[in-house]
Amino acid sequence: MTDQSLKESPIPVGFHLVLPPGWGKINLREESINDSILALVDRSINQLPDDIPKDDISKVRMELFKQLKKAARKAEKANGLLLYLPVERIRSTVVPASFVVSEPTDGTGAGIQSDQVLGSLAAGRGNSEPVEIDGSSGIRMERVVPPPEDSETDFASRRVEYVLSMPASPLPRWLAITFSTVGDGNPDSEFSSALVDLFDAVMMTFRWSYT
């Protein structure tokens, strides 16, 4: 799936959303994924000051490629299809945030109702609330996640997940969009909250596409 292709009408064939300035996308199912990552690396490197030595730029470029490649692998292992993340710098720093669109999943079991699925998803996932976006019922869940034991960071992350039902699907299908940020190291800070608000604003631009 890309953000333009899912399936034939009347089921949505994809979706559109409006990214914040400076954000980019990596299609995790493209064979040319390295080319996509390099394009985002170049966008970021082009914002560096002109007086930085070429050797230092090469080191930054290599390190950024490794970071994006690692993020892409992690998202792909989590059944991700698309990875969105900021690549342009704000005050010389790349914002530590991203969100992943995952492979649409099928509902399990005949006769299972949407509210039962949503209730099951919400159990144990922090704060949750029902949402409706572009005609799709769904749920928004938010929680703070401690760093994994094998993580290179000691910071907890603020995570927000939207799960939306796919319109007109003959069987229940769900699309998950998951946002994560370590913010400034404090998941409850104003900065972390502002990044969550930014993601919520992006989700309000989400629209299914049918052509």
Rank of each mutant, 00 (worst) to 15 (best):
M1C: 04
I37H: 04
Y210Q: 00
M62Q: 11
E31V: 10
I33H: 03
S165T: 07
N127S: 09
L19I: 11
D106H: 09
Q47P: 03
G14T: 06
D35E: 15
G14Q: 04
S92P: 00
A71M: 13
G138V: 00
D56C: 00
L40N: 07
N186Q: 12
M204E: 06
L48K: 02
S114T: 13
G124Y: 11
S44Q: 05
D50P: 02
V144N: 09
V94K: 09
K54H: 11
G24W: 09
G183W: 01
E76C: 01
Y210H: 09
D134T: 09
P170G: 11
T178G: 08
E63K: 13
D42H: 15
S44G: 07
V95P: 01
N34E: 14
S102P: 01
Q116F: 03
N27R: 05
P147V: 03
P86Q: 09
V196S: 13
G107T: 06
L17E: 06
E142D: 04
L6E: 02
M203F: 07
D50N: 14
P104E: 08
V202P: 00
K54Y: 10
F155L: 05
L118N: 01
V100G: 05
G183F: 02
K25C: 12
T205M: 13
L198K: 11
D3P: 00
S9H: 07
N46H: 12
T2Y: 05
P12S: 03
S9L: 07
D3G: 00
I45E: 01
P104M: 08
E152H: 03
L195K: 06
T211V: 01
P12N: 02
T153W: 08
L48M: 14
S9A: 15
K66H: 14
V13M: 08
R125K: 08
S137F: 12
E31A: 06
D50H: 12
M1H: 04
E152F: 10
N186C: 06
D51Q: 11
P148I: 00
L40C: 09
E190R: 15
V117N: 00
L48Y: 11
L28F: 07
V182N: 02
E31D: 11
G111Q: 04
E103N: 14
L17M: 15
G109D: 01
I57R: 15
E31Y: 10
S98L: 13
L198S: 15
A71D: 15
K74E: 03
T105H: 12
T153S: 15
V202N: 03
T93H: 13
G109N: 05
G185D: 10
Y210E: 00
D188N: 15
E63S: 15
P53K: 09
S58D: 14
A194Y: 10
N34L: 12
F206Y: 12
F179S: 02
L17K: 03
D188S: 12
K66C: 09
E76L: 09
R143A: 14
T205G: 11
T105R: 15
R207S: 07
S44L: 06
P49A: 13
P49W: 11
V145C: 08
I90A: 08
E142T: 12
R173A: 10
V101C: 13
G107P: 05
S120Q: 14
I45N: 01
R29L: 06
H16Q: 15
G14C: 07
V41P: 01
S193C: 03
A97Y: 05
